[in-house]
Design a protein around this nucleic acid. Structure first.
Lengths: 195, 195
DNA sequence: TCTTGTATTGAACACACGTTCAGTTAACTT
DNA sequence: AAGTTAACTGAACGTGTGTTCAATACAAGA
């Protein structure tokens, strides 16, 4: 038996990535076997190797895609003049983007250690590029006297950690809408860095 | 060959826990084998089972001990009257305590998913107890008109996420002392929740 | 010095792992 | 209708997994 009716590369490839993302996020990279991923897709383990050279590359591609999408989506946001408006946009953007991809966010913050040194560095530099976007906003705000921040680098990391934490507790259909969550976090961030 | 000179249960036990904590934090629970832990201690894998019934219980004991220590250490802190002073104490306490145990902190936030349902619930309820300590402070502050917080539950989680994030970037002997880090975060937290 | 009990070894168990590949089938091309 | 190719199977490879346990070597007590 081989090649079931109606199966194609364009379908199986994404399905493998989807299954891997969900399983890695739920159980951890090392705890998930290639056979589990294959079973989820409805295929034998060997077939996965038509789509990825090995397991680590599968993880890397997921992380890389996530970071690329994150940076591209932020680039696509309108560019405001006022640092305070830009900061508000960043806060709401980060929450919205992360709540739409909780699995990818979790992976990105938890499974970097399963990457080899080279792959690790590539993801890290994308992450730093994203952090720099926020820090630039904060620095501009300080320079214009709109914000008061003892250390913009730490403030950057603190704000991102705080915002990213949303994914750990937010549940769809819960007490609060996404917009309301955005309002609440923006209130805290704005006050935390205000002059 | 068996039982090397000068080895005792009181020594091997803690050494196993130390090695397991370090390895689990660095490589992840599932990625670390009992043989690796044993090798770190200088013992054969079978010997570990004199100290733990199985691998998951070893992880659980590490997480449980960490949470117990965390709650006990917070209990031992002076109890202030003023909510603002209590909040400042909490912020500085959390940073100080976590920076002293980066491995245990990392484990506690990353490897809960490797616990069975019962063990998971036990750790979760300890975590919730700790979060309640902070939320009580925030609520008292709001009630006395000292703080302005749209949602104390979210503020609790946001503050803890922000503070815990310190362990991901702080390096001993780096640009900032621990006290300075405490100052910076307290500045941000105070402003974020101030009336 | 001899006995007793504890800490540890080392081999074995059954199973699961990531990965490879010759073989097989369905779909596409001509 | 025949030939070609892409998609996938199923079995196998060597290695590693958590865990058990009889055998053993040391330390302490009498």
């Amino acid at each position: 038996m081989a090649r079931k009716t109606g199966s194609h590369s364009e379908i199986t490839g994404p399905r493998i990535r989807d299954a891997a993302l969900r399983l890695f996020a739920r159980y951890g990279f090392a705890a998930v076997s290639m056979r589990q991923i294959a079973a989820e897709v409805g295929v034998q383990a060997g077939a996965l190797y038509l789509y990825t050279p090995d397991k680590e590359t599968l993880l890397f591609d997921l992380l890389k895609s996530h970071m690329d999408e994150l940076l591209a989506a932020w680039e696509a946001e309108p560019k405001d003049e006022d640092p305070l408006t830009r900061l508000e946009r960043f806060v709401r953007f980060h929450i919205r983007f992360n709540l739409e991809r909780p699995d990818a966010v979790f992976l990105s913050y938890m499974e970097l250690r399963n990457l080899g040194p080279d792959n690790f560095r590539r993801i890290e530099s994308l992450r730093r590029a994203y952090e720099d976007e926020l820090e630039t906003i904060l620095r501009d705000g300080v320079r214009q006297g709109l914000l008061s921040i003892p250390d913009t680098k730490i403030a950057t990391l603190a704000i991102i950690a705080m915002l990213t934490g949303v994914t750990t507790w937010y549940r769809e259909g819960g007490r609060l809408s996404r917009d309301r969550v955005g309002d609440i976090y923006w209130d805290m961030v704005r006050k935390a860095v205000s002059a």
